[in-house]
Design a binder for these strands. Structure first.
Lengths: 230, 230
DNA sequence: CGCGAGCTTGACGTTGTTCAACTAGAGTGG
DNA sequence: CCACTCTAGTTGAACAACGTCAAGCTCGCG
């Protein structure tokens, strides 16, 4: 955000390791082909099914990536924090988005034309390798999530979600949520009613406190155990 | 299989598009660093959690990739048919396998040292791009699967599995299964009892026939509709 | 002929969803 | 300033979907 708006990619480079492998020239090319856009909470950044033209790097705020299922609930597959780019699997295949991205808070993102990025990727094998690393990590995450969906029940999944939010997204404890109960449920793969019931149980068991959007994890060990053992 | 054993990688090259981008020299390097191994049905090829040393290309038979969950059921995340390589996401990260691979039938595979592969990848950007394409496709598949797990119920999922087996794995109809009921259930993310009950219903409704391991899809349209609508 | 592994079926219990009602707080207009 | 509405959150009761468990079946093989 402040980085990209004022310092250009040279500062971004310090934040997201993928860009470390670029030369000054390559970075300059990307910098000149970059647009920074501001999104309000709830606004859609790109839409599932639409063609993809840009590479997105979130520079401030919080972005949710979710799959839309007609009449069914959405499934939030990932949250993207600054300074992180959004992995768009369709870029190298059907050139379509396979999920929707929307801002959860006031958010800014850098847009870079995908041709510029792929050119750089072709020319700089280190950059390509970094990208492969990134996608691989993403895949590992998805595998674990998928496995969790299959054998964990609600308590384990909610515990996992809370743990993830504190450790990976807000990076503190206590923390203040910028996600609604519905969104929390969507990223856990259950209904909001079920999510709330589990929260209530966790509160009763003194594992967390939760008033409105302010949440504190009181017993990390217990939460992790519940998360692991389903 | 016959390809790799007798013709070397030059023939394999005709089969798996990822290798199309390689020069003769690069292909020769891979060819000389290649070992072809034969696995009996049920044998483990590599094990979840173990360090990864090789790149695997399935040259005959059928391989299942599955996540092991302690006391819970396994989850089959993918089946690999010839001539296709196994995507190993840990190669570029923690150097560990994140799932187990096992032969479902009599299977042969070419093993190539990962350093040889990554060297080639670094030198040949086209090859790297092909690899990125591959991982991306894999990711899209996983996303769809994950989404399906979350909103489809058993009928939809079983329909999806049968459809997938006929279209992608055996590539014909009728087809003869080399997977047990337990394995079919594991790749659908349900219990074998549930899988069997759904099969029974499909048979009653004249959508399929299934005697032992011989299966025929009678009504593709209906099956696809059930698969889509859950 | 008998054994065992995989398959099939039925009865039952648990889990989580659905639906509906109720509450609290924020924004709006008289 | 007070209804009014609207949305998000919360709770309870009823229900459906799956999983679990246990028993019986089939078929290949010694």
């Amino acid at each position: 955000m402040i980085n990209c708006l004022h310092g250009g990619c040279l500062v971004c480079r310090e934040r997201n390791e993928v860009f470390n492998s670029l030369t000054g020239d390559e970075l300059a090319t990307i910098d000149t082909n970059r647009t920074n856009i501001r999104y309000k909470p709830g606004e859609i950044i790109f839409k599932q099914g639409a063609p993809c033209y840009n590479f997105y790097c979130v520079t401030s705020g919080l972005v949710k990536l979710f799959i839309e299922n007609g009449n069914h609930h959405n499934l939030i597959i990932d949250l993207v924090t600054p300074v992180e780019y959004i992995f768009i699997p369709g870029i190298f295949n059907d050139q379509k988005h396979h999920f929707t991205a929307a801002a959860c808070e006031e958010t800014t993102a850098c847009l870079i034309d995908i041709h510029v990025m792929t050119d750089v990727m072709r020319k700089n094998p280190d950059f390509a390798m970094e990208y492969i690393k990134k996608i691989s990590r993403q895949s590992i995450g998805m595998l674990e999530k998928m496995s969790g969906y299959n054998h964990k029940q609600v308590f384990g999944r909610v515990a996992e979600t809370l743990f993830f939010l504190s450790k990976e997204i807000y990076k503190k404890n206590p923390f203040t949520l910028s996600l609604s109960r519905q969104e929390l449920a969507d990223m856990t793969g259950i209904t909001k009613e079920s999510f709330i019931r589990v929260l209530k149980k966790f509160k009763e068991d003194q594992i967390i406190t939760m008033e409105g959007n302010h949440c504190e994890i009181l017993n990390f060990q217990m939460l992790e155990m519940i998360s692991k053992n389903g």
